[in-house]
Every structure is written in C-alpha cells, then in structure tokens.
Computed example of a mutant assay.
Amino acid sequence: MPNIQPSTLRDVGYQLFEASGCTAEDARAVVDHLVESNLFGHDSHGAIRYYEYTRAIREGRFQPWATPTIVRDYPSTAVVDAGGALGQVGATFAIKLATEKARQHGLATVTLRNTSHVGRAGAYPLMAAREGNMIALAFVNAGRLGYQIAPFGGLEGRLSTNPIAFSAPRPDTDPILVDMTTSVVAEGKVRVAINQGSQVPEGWLIDSEGNSTTEPNDFRADPPGAILPLGGVVAHKGFALGLVVELLGGALSGEGCADGSRTMRSNGVLFTVYNIEHFTELSTYYEEVEALLRHVKSSRLAPGFNEILAPGEPEFRSAQRKEKDGIEIDETTWAHICREGRILGLNPDSW
C-alpha cells in the first residue's frame, strides 16, 4: 500500500484537475479538501475521489469551468445554483455567502444546488467556525439518488447517506466538529473496503434478501444489498433524520429528493450559520463551551478508553500525525488515479 506525503498527493491532484480543465484556484479548492479528508482519517472522501471526479468531468457530468450564481437573494437567505461546478467550488461559495450574511444579520441560511459532489460535509461548517464567532450547520442530500440506504423496516435501498454536519468554535484550539451520516456508514467507506479487498463490520450492510453481511461486494451485487440506517435497534431514528435531510437539503435547494435514481447529478445542500454575538457575548459563549467539555470529560472512563474526546478531536489529531507520517493509499485506488492521469496525458511515473 503506497504511503504518500500530503504535499505529493496534493501536487498529483492539482495536475489531474488542471489537466481536466479546472482553473488553478478551483483545482486547489477541490484537492485541498480531498487531501484534508485523508488527513482527517476519512479516506472515503479523500483521494479515492480524484479519479471519480475527473472521470465525471470527461463524461460531461461535472463542469470544471462553471461559476456559482445567486438565483434567490434576501437579507438572511439565498439560493445558489453552481451551474454544475465541482462541489467544493459551489459549497465554498455558499458557506462564505451564508457566513457574510450572518455577520450582518445574525443568522443566515443558504441552499445550494447543481453542484456535483461536495465531498466531506463537515468541511464547510468548519470554515465558518474557524471565523471564531460563528456556529454552522449543514444538511446534505444526494438529489434524486435513492438506492443506498434501506428505510427502517425495508429490504431495499431508497435513500442516500444524507450527512448532517455541525461546527462550533472553541477559544485557542480547534473547533468542535460533528460530521455524521444518517446511515450506519458512508457509502465511500464500503467502496474503500471493496478496493482494499477487506470485509466490513457486522451491522453495516444487508444483502438483497435482508441478511446481515460483512461482504462489501454484496452492496453492488445484482440484485444489490443496502446500507442500514443509523441507530441499530433504534434505526427508525436514523431513518427519520435521513428524511429530514432530504427535505432540507433536497426540497429547499431545488435539487430534489430521492426518487430511486442510481446516478447522482448533484448534492442538495442547506447551510445555516449563527453569529454568536447576536445571541450572547462571545466571552460568555466560550466560558460555556469549555465548562461543558470539562464536565463531559470528567466522567470515569469505560474499559478500553484512555480519555474522552470531543467531536472533531480524533480528526485533528489524525491530521497532525499524517502530515508527518504520510497518507496510505490502497493499491487499487492508486492504480485508478494513475490510469486517469495517463488518459489526461500526464506521466504518473513521475509521481
């Protein structure tokens, strides 16, 4: 399994996306996002997407030259149509717009459509939280795509993984970061297991007959299996949250809700940003968040645990470690990346 320094992996990505027709600025937005996903330990949303995105550009599904536009604009809300631009380009535009509106008006919601695949949902609330005085929330559906996640009580996939993400600042350290699918696992993690030739944990998947399976290829079989909704014995809660995301991310953005399509044209996204100082003093907020975390972390530890971590702490620690030690990319993913490079006229042997 190749171990690649983050700077090298970024350079490979810049070459791929610029060769695909992206501007240097847009290539950087996409690649930096994907490599950060690897650094955070979320390989399902990392460099494995290089070849998926560049292939989509070649096939005309993603538009590397498109520019997001605001199609509805009010003081504290807006709707953005990205024109088929790469998702990281459209979503960055939308979260920055929401943050600026919240800066002026205290609270803002911006929806986004026609934006391809935005990648890791948590990246965008994190951008707002790093302003130091903003809290942000994201709901992301997959437009009409609707075959991955079985509804509670069902045997066939009818929804997408439909993540919810949240970020809130802390004083003098990294923000709190919540980034979770409303399914047991992201579809990309099943894809990573297929590429690695490994089994998945019990409780992730069912086969086409509804039997629990640890074989990731059952998800892609004919007839296909499905990923389960979040929650285990209370999976009706994950299913319900998935429907919430469909309506907020899909219906309000205009991208639409799951209807059984097996091809994703674009995510539908809803961002809400809160300006803390329109609700309370920033110093008071900081005191409350730190007191809360001290209280939570004061619990006695369960067997097998050395400490209690706040949401986001595992990702930030992983990033520090992998910036130094490198990122492991499985052989199948690397082969796909190199193949895509050759199609684009690049020389992967130089990588």
Score class of each variant (00 low, 15 high):
residue 147 Y to A: 05
residue 342 R to M: 07
residue 159 L to A: 04
residue 148 Q to H: 09
residue 205 L to W: 09
residue 19 A to N: 07
residue 320 Q to C: 03
residue 347 N to L: 04
residue 145 L to E: 05
residue 163 P to W: 06
residue 157 G to N: 03
residue 333 T to E: 05
residue 37 S to H: 14
residue 125 P to G: 09
residue 330 D to A: 12
residue 162 N to M: 03
residue 239 F to Y: 13
residue 147 Y to M: 10
residue 170 R to I: 07
residue 297 K to Q: 15
residue 340 E to F: 01
residue 317 R to F: 06
residue 14 Y to E: 03
residue 120 R to M: 15
residue 266 S to K: 04
residue 313 E to L: 07
residue 300 R to H: 13
residue 291 A to G: 12
residue 309 L to E: 11
residue 307 E to A: 12
residue 214 T to Q: 09
residue 188 G to D: 07
residue 41 G to C: 09
residue 167 S to K: 11
residue 265 R to K: 11
residue 265 R to S: 09
residue 145 L to I: 10
residue 347 N to M: 06
residue 33 H to G: 07
residue 215 E to P: 03
residue 269 V to G: 00
residue 172 D to S: 08
residue 101 K to S: 06
residue 343 I to K: 14
residue 64 P to I: 04
residue 21 G to M: 03
residue 177 L to M: 13
residue 278 H to V: 01
residue 144 R to I: 02
residue 341 G to T: 01
residue 3 N to L: 15
residue 21 G to C: 08
residue 266 S to V: 01
residue 248 L to N: 02
residue 182 T to S: 11
residue 74 Y to P: 00
residue 340 E to V: 01
residue 317 R to T: 10
residue 149 I to P: 05
residue 200 V to D: 00
residue 178 V to P: 09
residue 158 R to A: 15
residue 82 A to K: 06
residue 35 V to C: 06
residue 161 T to M: 10
residue 36 E to Q: 13
residue 178 V to T: 08
residue 120 R to E: 06
residue 180 M to Y: 01
residue 250 G to I: 02
residue 178 V to H: 08
residue 184 V to P: 07
residue 161 T to H: 08
residue 17 F to T: 05
residue 71 V to A: 09
residue 106 G to P: 05
residue 110 V to E: 02
residue 111 T to N: 08
residue 346 L to Q: 12
residue 348 P to Q: 14
residue 306 N to V: 08
residue 294 R to I: 09
residue 231 G to E: 02
residue 87 G to C: 03
residue 61 R to V: 08
residue 265 R to F: 05
residue 189 K to Q: 13
residue 238 G to Q: 03
residue 14 Y to K: 07
residue 1 M to I: 02
residue 62 F to V: 15
residue 310 A to F: 11
residue 56 A to E: 14
residue 330 D to G: 15
residue 210 G to M: 08
residue 249 G to S: 08
residue 319 A to S: 14
residue 252 L to N: 05
residue 2 P to R: 12
residue 314 P to I: 10
residue 219 F to H: 12
residue 203 G to T: 06
residue 316 F to M: 12
residue 91 A to I: 00
residue 342 R to S: 06
residue 280 T to W: 02
residue 22 C to K: 01
residue 238 G to P: 01
residue 11 D to S: 15
residue 150 A to W: 01
residue 119 G to I: 05
residue 261 S to H: 02
residue 59 E to L: 13
residue 334 W to P: 13
residue 269 V to T: 10
residue 93 F to R: 00
residue 160 S to E: 05
residue 219 F to Q: 10
residue 314 P to R: 11
residue 280 T to H: 02
residue 62 F to K: 08
residue 315 E to N: 02
residue 193 A to E: 05
residue 126 L to E: 14
residue 179 D to N: 02
residue 209 E to I: 09
residue 142 A to M: 04
residue 211 N to D: 09
residue 234 V to L: 10
residue 144 R to P: 04
residue 96 K to Y: 06
residue 208 S to T: 09
residue 295 H to Y: 11
residue 115 T to G: 00
residue 239 F to I: 00
residue 45 H to F: 11
residue 327 I to P: 01
residue 78 A to W: 00
residue 34 L to A: 01
residue 194 I to F: 05
